[in-house]
Nucleic acid binder design. Structure first.
Lengths: 227, 227
DNA sequence: TTAACATTCAAACGTTCGTTTGAATCAGGA
DNA sequence: TCCTGATTCAAACGAACGTTTGAATGTTAA
């Protein structure tokens, strides 16, 4: 019995998932080979197919590992907020914070790979592959319905289709912010030490999103009429 | 001399670029094979390497074809606005409109493949590959500097680092909106006929972005102190 | 110790990848 | 007409791909 043999039962699974998060984030799903992946995970080439069945199944397991608890936490946080508020309507900014906070907290988690996952997730939102889209849609579905309902209650005067678009915009801002953190730098000038400060980023992002969500209504009817 | 032979000198080049826009958008760069690509373009397998040199060179040519005139148009539009305004400061919303208008107009251009390109572009903003990032950065650099300066002139009272972040957020909202149009539907409920109406989308998006850009300043100092 | 199961391993499977090659076909000017 | 350069074509290149296999090794309980 070697010293290395005293390890958790699924350590290989975990190492593979961690390596996959980093490499998929860096090179995409198709751009990451099983050989590179298993080498980084210090596992045998056949380990992925043994533990997960296939590359696609690994992708699904990867998202489920992080997304299931993350969205459950979001819903729990929203439940808590609504319970604390009694019957009163929640301020929209609090709902936003409940949603984005879960993502931003994970950005700070560089050691256990949470940051890798978040950036991969930001990229994957715009992945057009059918099975990826349906997976993400499935994993986000319940939380999105729940938050949409919360926004509808908080903003009863806003037209439904306008609200849907504004939720869409907010989601996009978050997704891009997560994916582009420390990668794309189209605009230079932000202080490097601010880039990973999740508390500061949350304040900035929430202020931006809340203002956008509550923007004065443009006259969509006029636009339609003119067209 | 066959009938088919009377064609523009670079028709094959164009067919390849058009097919590449559509397939790269659907399957990504790594996920699109030269065989599938040349088949869709009705060209020989060797045509890409003959006309462009390599797959990577094709990608660069693809972005240059659309992005160079698009960003030149943005800068020209901004020049025009500033000239018309004389010395007066531009309203931030007008600057936003000059930037997003160029993208959104291309969404309506379904026939010549502009929509494919725009959606591909939205995805590519978050691509972490080094040579892709530097290419996008290079193609966007001049326009981004120009617009950043315009925003600084329009909002002299806003702290520079806050402005940089808000430009970042606006860019992200646009990128995601472009990439996700008709693909991701995490939130259902928007009327399908509205999805491709660029005028309506521009009104919605501009209202959202302008409000976010002009959001009340969060107290970043407090956040920093508390941390 | 032995049997049963879980995991790891090296090797190979057939397929597909981006690219190259050299001949065939085309065009337009001398 | 013939020549020259541009373009297309079928075929092949070696490399890398995801997956499978069967033996070897490790672990657990009787």
């Amino acid at each position: 019995m070697s010293l290395r043999s005293v390890k958790p039962p699924h350590e290989t699974r975990t190492r593979i998932l961690d390596a996959a998060e980093e490499l998929f984030m860096q090179h995409g799903f198709e751009g990451t080979s099983m050989r590179l992946l298993t080498a980084k995970a210090e596992a045998n080439l056949a380990a992925v197919n043994y533990h997960f069945g296939s590359k696609d199944a690994l992708i699904e397991a990867l998202f489920r590992r992080r997304l299931d608890p993350m969205n459950a936490g979001r819903i729990a946080e929203l439940d808590r907020l609504e319970k604390d508020a009694g019957g009163r309507a929640l301020p929209p900014e609090a709902i936003i914070r409940a949603f984005v906070g879960a993502s931003l907290r994970m950005i700070e988690d560089a050691k256990s790979g949470g940051r890798n996952f978040i950036r991969l997730l930001g990229r994957t939102y715009t992945d057009p592959q059918k099975h990826i889209r349906s997976l993400i849609g499935q994993l986000y579905g319940p939380a999105m319905e729940r938050f949409k309902a919360a926004f509808e209650r908080a903003l009863p005067q806003m037209p439904r289709d306008e609200l849907v678009w504004r939720i869409h915009f907010m989601f996009g801002t978050l997704a891009y912010t997560l994916a582009a953190t420390d990668t794309v730098q189209l605009i230079a000038g932000c202080k490097p030490e601010d880039r990973y400060d999740a508390r500061l980023l949350e304040a900035r992002l929430t202020a931006f999103l809340a203002a956008g969500l509550l923007a004065p209504l443009h006259d969509a009817a006029d636009v339609k009429k003119a067209a």
